[in-house]
Design a protein around this nucleic acid. Structure first.
Lengths: 345, 345
DNA sequence: CTGTTAGCGCTTTCAC
DNA sequence: GTGAAAGCGCTAACAG
């Protein structure tokens, strides 16, 4: 920067001001400086600037995985919101593991983000402490924790499945199963299952039929395997809810392969409203939480919180409840059919 | 850090050394310092460290989009490789636009990454210049540019489609179409089309039938729409290659909906070997470039290049050609069938 | 509108 | 093994 200043015949400070835009510099000086910059191929060092101004200009976002279109849609929503203020997003992935999350939180904090957005409301004690003491706005998403760290932009995973169950009942299904992953680490999956079990009870259904596959993320393939096990174990089942659209998709493809008509022989629903769900044949009934919009809201809130923080007054904790929508599609259509007993092959 | 030093009764320098591990400090001192650190809830500021050591400890990765499982797999591969040296990855998305790419390159460079990995080998002139003059290792991936900036870890998009065409011919298909996006900005899509056209000529096929949909990224839905247009325009077509597995998937689902048997009425192939391709019914023939492995190789190379750079000697430009594999699945199975003319509905 | 001075939090370098 | 001094590249704060 000193070089640029020399070439333009001004002080470094003026160069700094010119580069920030804001028009705090004479147009001619500005122009002279910009020419010097491009002649020298100079690129501003923002991290040095951050050190002195204490504004790093970025926010960290922690998600379980990149290979899951819902989370990347949330990230995209966040990015869209933050782009408007030239705030950058630093993505970290936790692989659905709380321990990994703790490690990633630490690494992130070492780079001094101005805010941090995490997925879910359950963390290791140390992870939670680090977040609390970081002195920056924290947003927990994709969940509605009872005791949030700071802000929340989320929804109740249990409630989404309860509503989905109610719709399935309404469509005439009574024997409804649930396919999920181990829920040691994945609280969101666990909550969905809790919602399922509550619904079974509340709606007076016969019994809860749960097929557990491996550790999250549950793959397409596991969805296919699970549906086979399901039909083996409880052949009388009429419908099944999968923890995510991906596993629902796998289940449907496996049904095609085996000649089990969907939804006639087995109705299948998913979760998340992935792009794929809309286009699969038959199209997949699912629950939408508007991942992208959720991200955008989180991003907007973060912008506000960061601005407040820079102004010296932290924003009071906010709790934004994102509404969910059950999207009924062909995979759970209620069809004219014989009595339940007759349908069991 | 000064606080920690005071509490532990040492100098800041010793704290710095203790925190770096390397055992350059007496075990007792080390322990005292670590306790002070945790008592104070102190978190090291790496960006300050970076300023003074000139090692920022991260690498930028530019990809067209997060919502595309192949690119995120590449990112995952890169991350896996870099994790071994505690190097972080900063992801930037360019939205398949060269202008966006230029902007993202600039923002990234302002944070002083120690290396940068970009997708594709075509950039704006200014973008290219910035990359050349950044003084850090650059890796171009997913392509095999004739005049690379620095290192390359890629493959020929044209060659992949040529090989796929050859396999389709071998399976008995002669009237083969191609579904792609506008290729104003997306050179990789363009190269694949070029490969298609070369193959049409080389294999002595009747004519090139190309359906163009909108701007990349091509969605599942567009794949469905395109296949309908295709059948309208050239009903005699026997097989079609889609620019990506996603559009191939959309095409297949649309065929199911319309009762067009795949592959009997129309064989369909994709590109990229997405997870979905393996599990769709019928499973989708595709070309694999091992996105994850490609990422891992790029990451490993970057590690080497960064180490060389830190050592003062830039690594001589390397060119790694990733082999591709045509994976033949059910969507292009060669089936006993009547003569070509008879198959056209 | 522009310049000067000081210092952000750490690590390099050189002594001890 | 540990410490002191200097400085990384920039911007805040104040002065002019």
């Amino acid at each position: 920067m000193a070089d640029v200043a020399r070439l333009a015949g001004v002080s470094a400070m003026t160069v700094s001001r010119a580069l920030k835009g804001k028009g705090a510099v004479t147009p001619q000086t500005q122009e002279r400086i910009l020419r010097a910059v491009s002649d020298l191929g100079y690129v501003l060092d923002k991290s040095a600037g951050a050190l002195s101004s204490k504004k790093t200009g970025f926010v960290s976002v922690l998600i379980p995985s990149l290979n899951n279109s819902t989370f990347s849609e949330t990230v995209q929503g966040i990015t869209e919101a933050l782009d408007t203020e030239a705030m950058q997003v630093l993505i970290g992935t936790t692989g659905y593991s709380r321990a990994r999350e703790e490690a990633v939180i630490e690494t992130m904090l070492q780079r001094r983000p101005e805010g941090i957005i995490v997925t879910g409301g359950t963390h290791t004690p140390r992870g939670r402490t680090m977040l609390e003491q970081a002195g920056i706005p924290v947003i927990e998403t994709w969940d509605l924790p009872a005791a949030p760290i700071d802000h929340v932009v989320g929804f109740s995973n249990a409630a989404t499945i309860e509503d989905l169950m109610a719709r399935l009942m309404f469509r005439g299904y009574r024997r409804i199963a649930f396919i999920e992953g181990e829920h040691g680490e994945d609280t969101r999956g666990h909550d969905r299952r809790a919602g399922y079990e509550r619904a079974v009870e509340a709606l007076g259904l016969e019994r809860a039929c749960v097929i557990e596959v491996g550790r999250p993320p549950i793959t397409i393939e596991q969805g296919g395997g699970a549906v086979v096990r399901l039909m083996d174990t409880w052949p009388e089942v009429e419908a099944v809810i999968c923890v995510s659209d991906l596993s629902a998709f796998g289940a449907i493809m496996e049904c095609h392969r085996r000649g089990w008509a969907v939804p006639e022989r087995l109705a299948i629903a998913g979760f998340g409203d992935f792009e794929i769900a809309r286009h699969t044949w038959p199209s997949i009934t699912t629950v939408s939480v508007g991942s992208r919009g959720l991200g955008r809201q989180a991003g907007t809130l973060m912008l506000e919180a960061v601005a407040a923080m820079r102004g010296g007054t932290p924003l009071a904790p906010r709790r934004i409840n994102i509404p969910h929508t059950v999207i009924e599609r062909d995979s759970t259509a209620s069809l004219p059919r014989p009595a339940v007993a007759g349908r069991v092959a």
